[in-house]
Simulated scan of single mutants.
Amino acid sequence: MTRTRVAVLAAGGLLLGSVLLPGSSAAEPRNTPAAARAGIRLVPEDATCAPQQLNTSLTPSSSDAGPDVQRIIKRGKLIAGIDTNSYLWGFRNPTDGSLQGFDIDLVHALAKSILGNADAVEFLAVPTANRVSALQQGQVDVVVRTMTISCDRLSQVAFSVPYFNAGQEIVVPKSSSITGFNDTLKGKKVCAATGSTAADMLKDPAKNHGETVFPVANQLDCLVQMQLGNVDATITDNALGAGQVAQDPTIHLVGGPLDQEVYGVAMKLGSDDLVRRVNYVLKDYFTGQWTAEYQRWLTPLGSTPPPAPVPHFAN
């Protein structure tokens, strides 16, 4: 059986340790009410770049000649920063310990295209706040971790074309009086992962509704804190929120999406050859495999797969 190395990056960016886990295998998501919402708003109000910049990346190339792609080929493995705590996206199967999810399968597709072996991957579990530094310090080649493409992040790392559309939304217990990102949050404790889009939203005094922010390392920690009664609500991507709902049917998403976001594969700034190579993989991925992966993992977002993203390329 193929075995995949998984390591953990600590908050300080150091490699704390590693364990060997079995290779990924199929698993059916639990049944849950649809968590997707219609009518997603346009880009965040505080966007400092044009919307098309968030949706456009470098023209695809199948070439393996570039320095970044060559480094991966010579090493013989792709080093990918992932999440192991986001049900449906990147998580450990509690039965056999294997890594599974939509993002995990995308990493395997990248490895298969670049190295000819889908299992030629070293996975590093990267906390939300360390995604950018892990790339800048060369600890990982790619981050595939429901990472939102934003104006600020475009100045720090390079992105592929978007591979998924999402939006921030409120997650609360079904017994809660909170109805959305509004004055029902007054006096409440709201959980968000440090370094996330949700955390940035809560820092904005113009959007404050009198809530107290409760920061955690990863969005799944918010689910635990809600279950313990330590927080009243969570703000996270609705795609991740659907994973929380799938794990705990006593919670739900409320109020509808607060913005429109897109996830991209992140790479070190200046790694143009690798960006083009990843975009080459994604261009093919969108023609069939993307829908199959949605049906495999993301039906809690809605039983009917939405159209796959339409890539936009420049230079």
Rank of each mutant, 00 (worst) to 15 (best):
D183H: 12
A193Y: 00
I114W: 01
V190W: 07
D183P: 08
S175F: 07
G288R: 13
A242E: 03
P29K: 08
A11V: 04
N165I: 14
I114Q: 01
Q219A: 07
A36T: 06
N218I: 07
S113K: 14
K186T: 15
L110Q: 02
A266S: 06
V43Y: 01
A109I: 01
E28L: 13
Q244C: 15
V310C: 07
V216D: 02
T128K: 01
A80R: 02
T128G: 04
G195L: 14
A246F: 05
L110N: 03
T250K: 06
S303E: 12
D141W: 10
P33F: 09
P309L: 11
P29T: 12
D221E: 08
V245K: 08
E122Q: 14
Q137G: 13
S177C: 10
L298V: 12
V231T: 09
A11H: 05
S98C: 08
L58F: 03
G255A: 05
L301S: 13
Y163V: 05
A111E: 10
L54W: 09
F91T: 00
R41Q: 12
V157T: 11
I235M: 11
D232V: 01
H209S: 04
L274S: 04
C49L: 03
T179L: 10
H209P: 13
A80Q: 02
T179C: 13
F102M: 14
H312T: 07
E169M: 15
P162C: 07
G255H: 04
F181N: 07
P307R: 14
L228M: 11
V231N: 00
M267R: 06
K268G: 01
D103I: 03
R71P: 09
S160V: 07
S24A: 03
G66V: 10
V213K: 01
F102V: 02
L15W: 01
D152T: 12
S113G: 10
Q244V: 10
N315P: 13
M147L: 15
A129E: 00
A50M: 05
P51T: 04
F102Q: 02
A206G: 11
A166T: 15
T194K: 08
L20D: 04
I40C: 09
I178Y: 09
A199W: 11
G167N: 07
E28K: 09
R75C: 07
D119G: 10
S86I: 00
A111Y: 00
G167T: 03
S133E: 12
I72E: 00
T212Q: 15
G76D: 07
I79T: 07
A27E: 10
L20A: 02
A192T: 00
K186S: 15
V262H: 13
D204N: 13
G243R: 02
F181R: 14
R71A: 14
Q137D: 06
A80N: 05
E211L: 03
A27M: 10
C222D: 02
R3S: 09
K74S: 05
S57W: 02
S160A: 08
I114D: 00
I235L: 13
T146N: 14
T194I: 06
A198S: 15
A80C: 11
Q260P: 04
V6G: 04
P51S: 06
V142D: 02
A7T: 12
A193R: 00
